[in-house]
Amino acid sequence: MSEFHDDYPQYELMANHSEEEGKKIRRTLWNVFWIMLAITIIELIIGSMAPSHGWSGTAWLQFLFIGLTVVKAGFIVMAFMHLGHEVKFMKYVVLLPYTIFMLYGIFIILNEGIYSGQPVNKAKMDHIIIDQQKALTNHDLHHDGAAATEGHKEGHKEEAHH
């Protein structure tokens, strides 16, 4: 028993439950497991069928996978991590800041990623990267740059033998 509590409620002990309650909880947990297993198997079946059916990279497939992932994540957080049974304040404190931040993150990758994926902008950005790499090369060339490239080539020769 803890010694350092006075009249403050002991939440550690409140979490304990009886045998019958335990039975009910176990049944729910196994149900959640079967649902998650089914979702994973469905994902893998669709994933392995995608290339031969020409579904790879289609928008509906990506949304389906992301949707199923969010469903699985929801089950883990709400059932396994027990957040579904915590009080309202606890749920908000955990979920709200994270959700807001990640929605912003998703917005920014779609916006910036699609912009820089367009050929015009990609060429512009590649030029910057190539210039930077040139500057770096000129800087380390006389130290270890040459030795490193030599090592790579030798490694490949070895691989080719067997």
Partner: peptide, 27 residues
């Protein structure tokens, strides 16, 4: 523990967001 997990989830979220960016750059 929950607060630690939120901060850790933000780290993983950041990694996956930057992965998504690079993927959209080289579709």
């Amino acid at each position: 523990m929950w607060f630690f997990l939120i901060s850790d989830a933000l780290t993983f979220g950041g990694l996956l967001v930057s992965y998504g960016f690079i993927r959209h750059k080289w579709p």
